[in-house]
């Protein structure tokens, strides 16, 4: 890697098929499984009414609420998740595996379970909620509860992504920065986070996407009131009862947002990875 000797280009399989041809069958089936529902959704959109449907009072209120709550929960995810990931990646203490497992559990938990947990922790009669109520703080049925639910389900995405990147990157550069006189904060911001930037961005985007799609925990924990707690997914679920066209129209909005988000996160990460590979070859 650090040699100046001319390196022969690594042999590649460019232009030659490197995977068994039959792999295309399950691959296409898998792609179809994901693509067909999205197409199915698009075919049901009443295009003539689409603008009206997505700009109805209820739809606009839901979109505005989702934008607001996702912005807050994403900010919280970064503020809380980055320190958490750094601690998990850099500290060694007894029982750390247990802590990590618990913290990442919401990744696999059904959101409704998360909602129940939040209810019994922060709800009126919950562990902390009871004390908060005594202090006059009541988050039940407020937008705060929505943000809390979204943060709960989204936080592990960032922690998972960032912690893995931090572990893979190791502490070599941090040691170098320290001997160059950089304190822990400078090292963290100028060296560590810069090195894992793609993972941080991808993790944040995925967390935001997860927060945007949050349904179960919000429903269980926060309730559903237009403009206060009824985010886009809840509005879609509700509209399905009354006006399937409106539900489909809003769904399409979410699909578009999802596509943009994935393109940004995945595309960005891939670009960085390619740049690294390229620079690795040249040095």
């Amino acid at each position: 890697m650090t040699s100046t000797m001319p390196t022969a280009p690594a042999p590649t399989l460019e232009g030659t098929p490197f995977a068994p041809r039959w792999l295309a069958v399950p691959a296409i089936a898998g792609a179809a499984l994901i693509v067909l529902p999205l197409i199915g959704l698009a075919t049901r959109v009443e295009w003539a009414q689409f603008p009206a449907l997505v700009t109805s009072d209820a739809a606009l209120a839901a979109l505005a609420l989702s934008a607001r709550t996702v912005a807050w929960s994403t900010a919280l995810v970064v503020i809380l998740g980055v320190p958490l990931a750094v601690m998990l990646a850099r500290l060694e203490f007894r029982g750390m595996d247990v802590v990590r497992t618990v913290i990442l559990a919401p990744l696999v938990l059904p959101p409704v379970v998360g909602g129940l947990g939040l209810l019994y922790a922060f709800g009126r009669t919950g562990l902390i909620g009871e004390r908060l109520t005594l202090l006059g703080i009541d988050i039940a049925f407020t937008t705060t509860a929505v943000v809390l639910a979204q943060t709960f389900v989204a936080l592990p995405f960032l922690v998972f992504s960032l912690e893995g990147a931090l572990r893979a990157d190791g502490t070599r550069f941090e040691a170098v920065a320290a001997t160059l006189g950089a304190g822990p904060w400078t090292t963290l911001t100028r060296v560590t986070l810069r090195r894992v930037w793609p993972a941080l961005v991808a993790g944040t985007v995925l967390a935001a996407a997860r927060a945007l799609g949050e349904f179960g925990a919000t429903l269980t924990f926060a309730g559903s009131l237009q403009g206060v707690t009824r985010t886009v997914p809840l509005e879609i679920y509700l509209q399905r009862e009354a006006d399937a066209d409106a539900a489909v129209a809003l769904s399409l909005v979410l699909v578009v947002v999802a596509l943009v988000v994935v393109a940004l996160a995945y595309g960005g990460a891939t670009r960085v990875a390619r740049a690294r590979v390229a620079s690795g070859r040249s040095s």
């Binding site: 926060a222 309730g223 559903s224 009131l225």
Partner: peptide, 13 residues
């Protein structure tokens, strides 16, 4: 109401 739930079971819960 402080919340308009999506099903009667949610209201009860």
């Amino acid at each position: 109401p402080v919340s308009e739930e999506l099903s009667v079971t949610e209201v009860l819960a």
